Each structure stands twice: as structure tokens, then as C-alpha cells.
Amino acid sequence: MARSAAEPLSIDPGNWEVLEKIARSSAAAHRQVQRAKVLLAAAEGVANTVNADRHQVSVNTVRAWRAEYEHRGLEGFGKVKPGRGRKPSIPEEKIAEIIHRTNNTKPEGKTHWSCREMAQEIGVSHSTVQRVWDEVGIKPHRVETFKVSNDPDFEQKLIDVVGLYLNPPQKAMVLCMDEKSSIQALDRTQASLPMVPGRGETMTHDYKRNGTTTLFAALDVLTGKVIGQCLPKHRHTEFLKFLKTIDTEVPQGLDVHLILDNYSTHKHAEVKKWLKRNPRFHLHFTPTSASWLNQVERWFRDLTDKNLRRGVFTSVDELITSIEDYLAAHNQDPKPYTWTATAESILAKTRRARAKLNEVTS
């Protein structure tokens, strides 16, 4: 008789956060990383056989890890069985105390622990603290930014946008569009020094401002090619001008699905009138505070890293020429960004993030 599919593994938000850190860790033991990934996949409802094949373990191993988690949680997670390998240099209670204090307390007058301060607090060596942090992927010196969208239509907009990525419509072009506004033409106060062996390129910390421009860009999700245009501002008049540019660039006979944010310019009355006269254009708005859903933001990051940040521009015209050169070079060999996350997986992570926020703020 066929075995019924296992129910999704129940993991509370606190343990989920720990498992995600281990799964992303480059310092943790391979078996720990593998086990964390298996448990996370089990919580997302991945079947045991698929889970085992995806992470290159046996089905029995997946079942054993699930059963142990259901029985013991993270207690003893990833530890070597008694009687095998080198004996631990400090007791499990001390390790648990290091992890607990790192995650839940702060040194007096400071925002986070250093390994030496934690070592002095606990009474162990700083190398021991560092080793414990490495094993569970804790990095107190680092901070990442995030914001959970509070858009009341978050789920509907998310499903709409991700659906365009994973299942694009026929006879249509899907474009991720946004404006990179107020790009400054910055000139340095002294000439930069070239890179030499043992020293990178150097440039002055101060600069002279020579004006700004706004880049309108639309990334073709299928090919990675970008339609771009620099304009003085980013009002609805400039947005309409860019829509007309897109209209000339996209072959007739194809619908145009534009993924863009909720900026008021995109919903201006004149824009709505133009869209009525051009029915092949369809606008899809990302949820508020969810710019990460728009793939053109990834291209903007590349533009900043590879062209703008170390550029020297004595005028706005120089800046625009440099951006256009980068755009032309990119379009000679474009590469699309591969979107793999499903709407269901994103919604699950969002629910966990909201639960964690409620836990912290309650």
C-alpha cells in the first residue's frame, strides 16, 4: 500500500530563524547545513522523497531527522553521537548560554557583542566564542535591512507579479520598470590614483556636484535586455515620454506587461488617459515596501557598482553618456535574472516574519 504524504513539519519562528542561519552558513559542518535545509524543506511541505533527492540523503534519514526534531526540537542539533569523535572542550550548557546571551542580551552601553567581550562575560576564550558563533552562523557585527510590507493587497499583488515571472503570458513582453532618480554627476576635487601592486585604485573622499539626471529603465524579463532613457526629472510628463519610448521599442502585435511600484506618477490622470488609448499596455503594481519584487532593481545595483560609484563626471552630459555606454554594452550580451521563488514560499516567509515581529513587539 502506498505511503501517504507526510504533513508539513511544524517549526516555530525562533527555531526557523536559527535553521535558516545554519542553512546559509559557510562555516558550519556540511551535515548540519544539510540537515537544516532538509528540516526547512519539510516545514514547507516538500514530500520526503523529493526532499531526500534534493538534498542527497536517504528517505529514511529525512524521516529520522523529522522525528528527532518533533521529539527534541533543536536540542543537540547536529552534535556527534556520544562515544564518537573528540570530546567537547566546554559543556553543552555553556554553549547554550553563549548563544542565548548573544541573541537576547547586549553589553552595557553597546548595541552588540564582540567575541572578546562575550568571552569575558561567559568565562571562556574568545576563540571558543568565535567557534560557537561560526557553528550556528551568528554574526553580531553584521546587520541586514528589511521591511515587511503592510500593503492590504500584498497577497494579490505578489501572486500577480510572481505569476508574470514564472508563467508569462503568450504574445506579450514582460518588463520590470522603475526610475533611478537624482543620479548625481560627481567630480572629484583631485585626480584619482591608479591601481598598483599592493594597493587598489584611490580617489578623494570629497567631490563637486555638477547636476543630476533621472534614468528610466525597463528590463525585459525574458532576455535581460534593458530599454533605458535619461530625462531631467521624474514627473508624469517624463513617465509618459518613456512609455512612448517603450511603445516604439516593443514590436507591434505584442502586449506590454509593466511591473512597477506605487509611485503617484504612475497613476496620474494623464497616464490613465494614455493607457486607455494604448490598450496593449497593462500595469502591474508591486506591493508597497516590496521593491525587491522588481527585477530592474537588481540591474540598478549593477549599474551603481560597475559604472556610477567610481565614475568621475564633470557635467550631466558626461554622466548621461556614461550611462548610455553602460546600457549599450549590457544589451550587447544581456543575461536575464532567474526567478525561482513561488508566491506560496514568499507568503510563508512573510507570515513567519510578521509572527516574529509580533513576538518582538508584544
Score class of each variant (00 low, 15 high):
residue 44 E to N: 14
residue 102 T to E: 07
residue 347 L to K: 07
residue 255 D to P: 01
residue 136 V to S: 05
residue 356 K to R: 15
residue 42 A to W: 04
residue 292 W to V: 01
residue 192 S to P: 11
residue 360 V to I: 14
residue 310 R to L: 08
residue 136 V to M: 11
residue 39 L to F: 06
residue 63 R to P: 04
residue 70 E to H: 02
residue 56 Q to G: 05
residue 157 K to A: 02
residue 229 Q to M: 07
residue 343 A to M: 04
residue 13 P to C: 11
residue 259 I to M: 07
residue 310 R to N: 12
residue 36 A to H: 09
residue 236 H to Q: 08
residue 109 G to R: 09
residue 175 L to P: 06
residue 324 E to P: 05
residue 246 I to C: 05
residue 164 L to H: 02
residue 193 L to W: 07
residue 279 P to K: 14
residue 109 G to P: 10
residue 19 L to K: 07
residue 150 N to W: 02
residue 325 D to H: 06
residue 332 Q to D: 02
residue 248 T to A: 14
residue 82 P to I: 03
residue 102 T to M: 06
residue 24 R to S: 06
residue 195 M to Q: 13
residue 294 N to D: 13
residue 90 I to R: 11
residue 292 W to A: 01
residue 338 T to L: 15
residue 108 E to P: 12
residue 272 K to Y: 01
residue 163 G to M: 06
residue 48 N to M: 14
residue 105 T to H: 13
residue 164 L to I: 04
residue 329 A to I: 13
residue 255 D to S: 13
residue 333 D to A: 12
residue 286 T to V: 02
residue 154 F to C: 01
residue 119 A to E: 04
residue 29 A to H: 14
residue 288 T to F: 02
residue 163 G to I: 07
residue 218 A to D: 13
residue 141 H to I: 02
residue 18 V to M: 15
residue 14 G to Q: 12
residue 317 D to G: 03
residue 53 D to K: 15
residue 228 G to H: 01
residue 220 D to A: 03
residue 137 G to N: 08
residue 8 P to T: 08
residue 240 L to N: 01
residue 353 A to P: 00
residue 255 D to V: 01
residue 108 E to N: 12
residue 242 F to W: 09
residue 309 R to L: 10
residue 175 L to I: 09
residue 137 G to E: 04
residue 67 A to R: 10
residue 187 D to Y: 12
residue 268 H to W: 11
